[in-house]
Protein backbone atom coordinates (compact mmCIF):
# COMPACT_ATOMS: atom_id res chain seq x y z
CA UNK A 1 0.00 0.00 0.00
CA UNK A 2 1.22 3.49 -0.82
CA UNK A 3 0.34 6.72 0.99
CA UNK A 4 1.08 10.11 -0.51
CA UNK A 5 1.49 13.31 1.53
CA UNK A 6 1.32 16.66 -0.20
CA UNK A 7 2.33 19.72 1.81
CA UNK A 8 4.72 22.64 1.30
CA UNK A 9 5.96 22.42 4.89
CA UNK A 10 8.45 19.52 5.37
CA UNK A 11 7.86 19.44 9.14
CA UNK A 12 4.12 19.09 8.64
CA UNK A 13 4.74 16.16 6.27
CA UNK A 14 7.00 14.43 8.80
CA UNK A 15 4.47 14.81 11.59
CA UNK A 16 1.60 13.59 9.42
CA UNK A 17 3.58 10.59 8.21
CA UNK A 18 4.56 9.69 11.75
CA UNK A 19 0.91 9.80 12.85
CA UNK A 20 -0.48 7.81 9.94
CA UNK A 21 2.36 5.27 10.15
CA UNK A 22 0.97 4.17 13.51
CA UNK A 23 -2.15 2.94 11.69
CA UNK A 24 -0.34 1.68 8.59
CA UNK A 25 3.15 0.57 9.71
CA UNK A 26 3.83 -1.41 6.53
CA UNK A 27 2.76 1.21 4.01
CA UNK A 28 5.13 2.92 1.60
CA UNK A 29 5.17 6.69 2.25
CA UNK A 30 5.74 9.23 -0.49
CA UNK A 31 5.95 13.01 -0.24
CA UNK A 32 5.34 15.76 -2.76
CA UNK A 33 6.09 19.44 -2.32
CA UNK A 34 5.86 20.61 -5.92
CA UNK A 35 4.43 19.59 -9.25
CA UNK A 36 7.56 17.74 -10.37
CA UNK A 37 7.77 15.53 -7.28
CA UNK A 38 4.00 14.96 -7.43
CA UNK A 39 4.03 13.83 -11.05
CA UNK A 40 7.09 11.71 -10.46
CA UNK A 41 5.52 9.79 -7.60
CA UNK A 42 2.21 9.40 -9.48
CA UNK A 43 4.12 8.03 -12.45
CA UNK A 44 5.91 5.46 -10.28
CA UNK A 45 2.72 4.09 -8.75
CA UNK A 46 -0.73 5.47 -8.02
CA UNK A 47 -1.30 5.98 -4.28
CA UNK A 48 -4.00 4.18 -2.30
CA UNK A 49 -4.33 7.05 0.15
CA UNK A 50 -3.76 10.79 -0.27
CA UNK A 51 -3.28 13.26 2.57
CA UNK A 52 -3.04 16.80 1.24
CA UNK A 53 -2.97 20.35 2.50
CA UNK A 54 -5.33 22.79 0.83
CA UNK A 55 -3.31 25.94 0.48
CA UNK A 56 -0.16 25.19 -1.51
CA UNK A 57 2.21 27.66 -3.14
CA UNK A 58 1.90 25.99 -6.52
CA UNK A 59 -1.71 24.74 -6.52
CA UNK A 60 -4.50 23.75 -4.13
CA UNK A 61 -5.71 20.54 -2.51
CA UNK A 62 -8.71 20.23 -4.87
CA UNK A 63 -6.43 20.19 -7.92
CA UNK A 64 -4.21 17.61 -6.20
CA UNK A 65 -7.31 15.47 -5.59
CA UNK A 66 -8.24 15.56 -9.29
CA UNK A 67 -4.72 14.65 -10.36
CA UNK A 68 -4.46 11.72 -7.96
CA UNK A 69 -7.96 10.39 -8.68
CA UNK A 70 -7.10 10.33 -12.38
CA UNK A 71 -4.38 7.76 -11.59
CA UNK A 72 -6.46 5.75 -9.08
CA UNK A 73 -10.20 6.42 -8.86
CA UNK A 74 -10.37 4.32 -5.68
CA UNK A 75 -7.75 6.38 -3.83
CA UNK A 76 -8.93 7.55 -0.37
CA UNK A 77 -8.40 11.26 0.04
CA UNK A 78 -8.18 13.23 3.29
CA UNK A 79 -7.62 16.98 3.46
CA UNK A 80 -5.33 18.07 6.29
CA UNK A 81 -5.14 21.84 6.47
CA UNK A 82 -4.52 24.70 8.85
CA UNK A 83 -6.01 27.38 6.67
CA UNK A 84 -9.44 25.92 6.46
CA UNK A 85 -12.85 26.96 7.60
CA UNK A 86 -16.30 25.46 7.44
CA UNK A 87 -16.84 26.58 3.90
CA UNK A 88 -13.68 24.85 2.67
CA UNK A 89 -14.57 21.69 4.59
CA UNK A 90 -17.94 21.53 2.84
CA UNK A 91 -16.31 22.21 -0.52
CA UNK A 92 -13.74 19.44 0.00
CA UNK A 93 -16.34 16.85 1.02
CA UNK A 94 -18.62 17.84 -1.84
CA UNK A 95 -15.72 17.49 -4.23
CA UNK A 96 -15.20 13.90 -3.07
CA UNK A 97 -12.73 14.00 -0.21
CA UNK A 98 -13.40 11.24 2.29
CA UNK A 99 -12.63 13.43 5.29
CA UNK A 100 -11.33 16.78 6.41
CA UNK A 101 -9.07 17.35 9.43
CA UNK A 102 -7.87 20.71 10.75
CA UNK A 103 -4.11 20.83 11.47
CA UNK A 104 -2.85 20.99 15.02
CA UNK A 105 -0.68 19.01 17.41
CA UNK A 106 -3.68 17.41 19.05
CA UNK A 107 -5.25 16.64 15.69
CA UNK A 108 -2.57 14.20 14.53
CA UNK A 109 -4.28 11.27 16.24
CA UNK A 110 -7.54 12.34 14.57
CA UNK A 111 -5.81 12.39 11.21
CA UNK A 112 -4.62 8.79 11.64
CA UNK A 113 -8.13 7.65 12.61
CA UNK A 114 -9.71 9.56 9.72
CA UNK A 115 -7.34 7.97 7.21
CA UNK A 116 -7.95 4.49 8.66
CA UNK A 117 -11.75 4.90 8.58
CA UNK A 118 -11.75 6.28 5.04
CA UNK A 119 -9.49 3.50 3.80
CA UNK A 120 -11.59 0.72 5.40
CA UNK A 121 -14.79 2.18 3.99
CA UNK A 122 -13.20 2.40 0.53
CA UNK A 123 -12.05 -1.20 0.76
CA UNK A 124 -15.55 -2.36 1.63
CA UNK A 125 -16.87 -0.52 -1.40
CA UNK A 126 -14.20 -2.03 -3.64
CA UNK A 127 -14.94 -5.51 -2.34
CA UNK A 128 -18.66 -4.97 -2.81
CA UNK A 129 -17.96 -3.93 -6.40
CA UNK A 130 -15.82 -7.00 -6.99
CA UNK A 131 -18.48 -9.26 -5.44
CA UNK A 132 -21.13 -7.67 -7.59
CA UNK A 133 -19.07 -8.38 -10.71
CA UNK A 134 -18.66 -12.01 -9.65
CA UNK A 135 -22.37 -12.41 -8.98
CA UNK A 136 -23.21 -10.83 -12.34
CA UNK A 137 -20.85 -13.18 -14.17
CA UNK A 138 -22.29 -16.19 -12.39
CA UNK A 139 -25.86 -15.08 -13.06
CA UNK A 140 -25.08 -14.51 -16.72
CA UNK A 141 -23.53 -17.93 -17.00
CA UNK A 142 -26.44 -19.62 -15.22
CA UNK A 143 -29.00 -17.77 -17.30
CA UNK A 144 -27.41 -18.81 -20.58
CA UNK A 145 -26.96 -22.39 -19.44
CA UNK A 146 -30.58 -22.57 -18.37
CA UNK A 147 -31.73 -21.10 -21.67
CA UNK A 148 -29.66 -23.79 -23.39
CA UNK A 149 -31.41 -26.45 -21.31
CA UNK A 150 -34.79 -24.98 -22.28
CA UNK A 151 -33.80 -25.13 -25.95
CA UNK A 152 -32.62 -28.73 -25.50
CA UNK A 153 -35.93 -29.66 -23.86
CA UNK A 154 -37.86 -28.02 -26.69
CA UNK A 155 -35.87 -29.96 -29.22
CA UNK A 156 -36.61 -33.24 -27.43
CA UNK A 157 -40.30 -32.41 -27.23
CA UNK A 158 -40.27 -31.43 -30.91
CA UNK A 159 -38.88 -34.82 -31.84
CA UNK A 160 -41.49 -36.64 -29.74
CA UNK A 161 -44.35 -34.84 -31.50
CA UNK A 162 -45.79 -36.49 -34.57
CA UNK A 163 -47.50 -33.66 -36.40
CA UNK A 164 -45.53 -31.29 -38.58
CA UNK A 165 -47.60 -28.23 -37.61
CA UNK A 166 -46.97 -28.72 -33.90
CA UNK A 167 -43.27 -29.20 -34.56
CA UNK A 168 -43.12 -25.92 -36.39
CA UNK A 169 -44.82 -24.17 -33.49
CA UNK A 170 -42.16 -25.51 -31.16
CA UNK A 171 -39.39 -24.49 -33.55
CA UNK A 172 -40.87 -20.97 -33.57
CA UNK A 173 -40.88 -20.95 -29.79
CA UNK A 174 -37.22 -21.99 -29.85
CA UNK A 175 -36.44 -19.03 -32.13
CA UNK A 176 -38.25 -16.65 -29.77
CA UNK A 177 -36.15 -17.88 -26.88
CA UNK A 178 -32.98 -17.52 -28.97
CA UNK A 179 -33.97 -13.93 -29.76
CA UNK A 180 -34.44 -13.13 -26.08
CA UNK A 181 -31.11 -14.72 -25.35
CA UNK A 182 -29.38 -12.63 -28.02
CA UNK A 183 -30.90 -9.52 -26.43
CA UNK A 184 -29.65 -10.66 -23.05
CA UNK A 185 -26.16 -10.98 -24.45
CA UNK A 186 -26.27 -7.45 -25.82
CA UNK A 187 -27.36 -6.16 -22.39
CA UNK A 188 -24.38 -7.89 -20.84
CA UNK A 189 -22.03 -6.48 -23.47
CA UNK A 190 -23.28 -2.95 -22.95
CA UNK A 191 -22.15 -3.22 -19.29
CA UNK A 192 -25.21 -1.18 -18.50
CA UNK A 193 -27.96 -3.68 -17.96
CA UNK A 194 -30.64 -1.15 -18.72
CA UNK A 195 -29.61 -0.37 -22.28
CA UNK A 196 -28.80 -2.30 -25.41
CA UNK A 197 -27.09 -1.63 -28.73
CA UNK A 198 -30.17 -2.41 -30.80
CA UNK A 199 -28.45 -2.23 -34.19
CA UNK A 200 -25.91 -4.85 -33.09
CA UNK A 201 -28.75 -7.03 -31.82
CA UNK A 202 -30.70 -6.77 -35.10
CA UNK A 203 -27.60 -7.65 -37.10
CA UNK A 204 -26.98 -10.71 -34.96
CA UNK A 205 -30.63 -11.77 -35.02
CA UNK A 206 -31.06 -11.42 -38.78
CA UNK A 207 -27.76 -13.22 -39.35
CA UNK A 208 -28.60 -16.18 -37.17
CA UNK A 209 -32.14 -16.59 -38.52
CA UNK A 210 -30.81 -16.47 -42.07
CA UNK A 211 -28.25 -19.14 -41.27
CA UNK A 212 -30.97 -21.45 -39.97
CA UNK A 213 -32.74 -21.37 -43.30
CA UNK A 214 -32.36 -23.91 -46.06
CA UNK A 215 -31.63 -22.06 -49.31
CA UNK A 216 -29.49 -19.00 -49.89
CA UNK A 217 -30.71 -15.73 -48.41
CA UNK A 218 -28.97 -12.52 -49.42
CA UNK A 219 -29.14 -10.35 -46.33
CA UNK A 220 -28.59 -6.62 -46.66
CA UNK A 221 -28.79 -4.34 -43.67
CA UNK A 222 -28.61 -0.63 -43.12
CA UNK A 223 -28.73 -0.09 -39.41
CA UNK A 224 -28.35 3.26 -37.74
CA UNK A 225 -26.59 3.08 -34.37
CA UNK A 226 -29.24 3.11 -31.68
CA UNK A 227 -29.06 2.43 -27.97
CA UNK A 228 -32.45 1.51 -26.54
CA UNK A 229 -33.68 1.06 -22.96
CA UNK A 230 -34.54 -2.48 -21.87
CA UNK A 231 -38.31 -1.91 -21.64
CA UNK A 232 -38.38 -0.94 -25.31
CA UNK A 233 -35.63 -3.22 -26.60
CA UNK A 234 -37.24 -6.47 -25.42
CA UNK A 235 -40.68 -6.02 -27.07
CA UNK A 236 -39.17 -4.34 -30.15
CA UNK A 237 -36.64 -7.17 -30.43
CA UNK A 238 -39.37 -9.80 -30.22
CA UNK A 239 -41.38 -7.97 -32.88
CA UNK A 240 -38.32 -7.90 -35.16
CA UNK A 241 -37.86 -11.62 -34.58
CA UNK A 242 -41.45 -12.31 -35.67
CA UNK A 243 -41.15 -10.15 -38.77
CA UNK A 244 -37.85 -11.71 -39.87
CA UNK A 245 -39.18 -15.21 -39.22
CA UNK A 246 -42.37 -14.44 -41.12
CA UNK A 247 -40.48 -13.15 -44.15
CA UNK A 248 -38.07 -16.05 -44.20
CA UNK A 249 -40.79 -18.62 -43.70
CA UNK A 250 -43.53 -17.37 -46.00
CA UNK A 251 -42.06 -15.04 -48.59
CA UNK A 252 -38.94 -17.15 -49.03
CA UNK A 253 -40.22 -20.65 -48.35
CA UNK A 254 -37.88 -23.56 -47.73
CA UNK A 255 -35.33 -24.06 -50.44
CA UNK A 256 -36.16 -20.86 -52.26
CA UNK A 257 -33.39 -18.30 -52.47
CA UNK A 258 -33.95 -14.59 -52.27
CA UNK A 259 -33.12 -11.35 -50.56
CA UNK A 260 -34.05 -9.87 -47.22
CA UNK A 261 -33.24 -6.27 -46.42
CA UNK A 262 -33.39 -4.75 -42.97
CA UNK A 263 -33.15 -1.06 -42.14
CA UNK A 264 -33.23 0.74 -38.82
CA UNK A 265 -33.36 4.51 -38.67
CA UNK A 266 -34.31 7.35 -36.41
CA UNK A 267 -36.99 9.68 -37.72
CA UNK A 268 -37.60 12.50 -35.27
CA UNK A 269 -38.53 10.93 -31.96
CA UNK A 270 -39.32 7.52 -33.45
CA UNK A 271 -37.31 4.47 -34.41
CA UNK A 272 -38.33 2.92 -37.71
CA UNK A 273 -37.60 -0.67 -38.66
CA UNK A 274 -38.20 -1.64 -42.27
CA UNK A 275 -38.03 -5.24 -43.44
CA UNK A 276 -38.41 -6.00 -47.13
CA UNK A 277 -38.20 -9.32 -48.93
CA UNK A 278 -38.10 -10.09 -52.61
CA UNK A 279 -40.33 -13.09 -52.34
CA UNK A 280 -43.86 -13.23 -53.66
CA UNK A 281 -45.05 -9.78 -52.62
CA UNK A 282 -48.76 -10.46 -52.94
CA UNK A 283 -48.50 -13.58 -50.92
CA UNK A 284 -46.30 -11.88 -48.35
CA UNK A 285 -48.75 -9.04 -47.81
CA UNK A 286 -51.68 -11.41 -47.55
CA UNK A 287 -49.86 -13.46 -44.99
CA UNK A 288 -48.93 -10.43 -42.92
CA UNK A 289 -52.44 -9.10 -43.12
CA UNK A 290 -53.90 -12.36 -41.85
CA UNK A 291 -55.03 -11.77 -38.29
CA UNK A 292 -54.80 -15.38 -37.26
CA UNK A 293 -51.54 -16.96 -36.26
CA UNK A 294 -49.56 -16.63 -33.09
CA UNK A 295 -46.76 -14.64 -34.74
CA UNK A 296 -49.16 -11.98 -35.95
CA UNK A 297 -50.88 -11.85 -32.58
CA UNK A 298 -47.52 -11.33 -30.85
CA UNK A 299 -46.61 -8.55 -33.27
CA UNK A 300 -49.96 -6.85 -32.60
CA UNK A 301 -49.81 -7.09 -28.81
CA UNK A 302 -46.17 -6.03 -28.53
CA UNK A 303 -46.61 -3.12 -30.96
CA UNK A 304 -49.54 -1.95 -28.83
CA UNK A 305 -47.41 -2.32 -25.69
CA UNK A 306 -44.71 0.05 -26.96
CA UNK A 307 -47.20 2.47 -28.57
CA UNK A 308 -45.91 1.69 -32.05
CA UNK A 309 -47.49 1.55 -35.51
CA UNK A 310 -47.08 -1.14 -38.09
CA UNK A 311 -47.83 -1.19 -41.80
CA UNK A 312 -47.51 -3.69 -44.61
CA UNK A 313 -47.26 -2.78 -48.23
CA UNK A 314 -46.48 -4.30 -51.55
CA UNK A 315 -43.15 -3.18 -52.90
CA UNK A 316 -41.79 -3.58 -56.44
CA UNK A 317 -40.19 -6.89 -55.65
CA UNK A 318 -41.93 -8.20 -52.56
CA UNK A 319 -43.54 -7.35 -49.24
CA UNK A 320 -42.42 -4.44 -47.09
CA UNK A 321 -43.16 -4.34 -43.40
CA UNK A 322 -42.55 -1.10 -41.54
CA UNK A 323 -42.84 -0.58 -37.83
CA UNK A 324 -42.19 2.63 -35.97
CA UNK A 325 -41.98 2.99 -32.22
CA UNK A 326 -41.70 6.10 -30.04
CA UNK A 327 -38.28 6.57 -28.43
Amino acid sequence: MRILFVDDDPDARVLAIRAVAQEFPNAGFREASDLVSLDQTLLEQAPDILVTDFDLRWTDGIAIFDRVKATNPFCCCVMFTGTGNEELAVRAIKHGFDDYVVKGAKQLRRLATAVRTAYDRGRELRELGENRDLVLKELYHRLHNNLQIVISLLRMTEKAIATQGDREQLADLGRRIQALSALQEEFYRSEDFRKVDFAAFLQRLAGSLTELKVGYVRLTSRLEAMVLPVDLAVPFGLIANEIFTNSLKHALPEGRSGGLSVALERLGDRAVLTVADDGDGVRGVDLFAATSGLGMRLIGRLTEQVGGEISFERGDTGAICRINVPL
Binding site: H144, I151, Q178, E185, E211, L212
Partner: peptide, 8 residues
Protein backbone atom coordinates in the same frame (compact mmCIF):
# COMPACT_ATOMS: atom_id res chain seq x y z
CA UNK B 1 -22.47 -18.74 -27.09
CA UNK B 2 -25.17 -20.70 -25.30
CA UNK B 3 -27.94 -21.10 -26.27
CA UNK B 4 -26.15 -21.85 -29.49
CA UNK B 5 -27.39 -21.59 -33.02
CA UNK B 6 -27.42 -25.15 -34.34
CA UNK B 7 -26.71 -23.96 -37.88
CA UNK B 8 -23.36 -22.70 -36.65
Amino acid sequence: QKPFNQAK
